[in-house]
């Protein structure tokens, strides 16, 4: 008689397999790219594809092993903690299990990533001072801190502080932005005696 695994077991297995399947797919793609490196072979020398191909073969082997293992036993993580576990024995808990997170806020994470991408994207246009002040304020607010009386001065002073330290002391050329925003950056630089 054929026994069908329950839906939760199938879902567990898929969840366990997913990261390795993605890595396997990427590794396969990179291996295909490595097979198409264009070069003129030198007699007696290994080509530029040998090293990356060797790494990719090992990576693929690990992924396949884990996928097979996870399909058989979804909750198993495979061997791990070798020497460390061998020496410390059961005297201490597994370092990996310490500090397990509590509640998650994926919305905050998505917003944080979007803000960081927007900051890098707008940096060349708005200039460092304006983009940074806006970014600092938005990120602090995203981090669930609500006191605008603290957020605004922190953002403005933080942005100016970074500008002063990195442009005046470290002699770094930070982006000043495009007109009309460049005028603001140049004005601030004049105020801080940055040449």
């Amino acid at each position: 008689m054929k026994i069908t695994p329950p839906a939760s077991q199938i879902s567990d297995r898929l969840r366990a397999v997913a990261p390795y399947a993605i890595v396997l797919f990427i590794a396969g793609g990179l291996f295909w790219l490595a097979m198409h490196f264009e070069y003129t072979p030198h007699a007696g020398r290994l080509g530029p594809d040998v090293w990356p191909k060797a790494i990719l073969v090992l990576m693929i082997a690990v992924c396949v092993t884990r996928i097979v293992g996870a399909l058989r036993r979804p909750r198993s993580e495979g061997p791990g903690g070798g020497l460390l576990r061998e020496v410390i024995g059961d005297a201490v808990p597994d370092p990996e299990t310490i500090g397990a997170p509590g509640e998650r806020y994926p919305g905050l994470l998505a917003l944080g990533v979007a803000l960081t991408v927007a900051y890098v994207f707008l940096l060349g246009w708005l200039g460092f001072a304006l983009a940074t002040a806006g970014y600092i304020a938005a990120m602090i607010r995203t981090g669930r801190y609500r006191r605008w009386r603290v957020i605004v001065p922190t953002a403005v002073l933080g942005s100016l502080g970074f500008m002063f330290v990195f442009m005046k002391i470290v002699y770094l050329s930070l982006p000043i932005g495009q007109p009309p925003f460049a005028t603001i950056s140049l004005g601030l630089m004049r105020l801080m005696a940055i040449r």
């Binding site: 490196f37 495979g78 791990g80 460390l84």
Partner: peptide, 30 residues
């Protein structure tokens, strides 16, 4: 020596080694 899964550590290591290969190869200029 890390406490967690050996497979995950190996994948992480291989990924790092692959990242290091990105760019123009020094010997062949490929």
């Amino acid at each position: 020596l890390g406490g967690g899964s050996l497979a995950n550590a190996l994948i992480s290591l291989f990924l790092g080694m692959l990242i290091a290969t990105v760019g123009v190869d020094e010997i062949y200029g490929v």
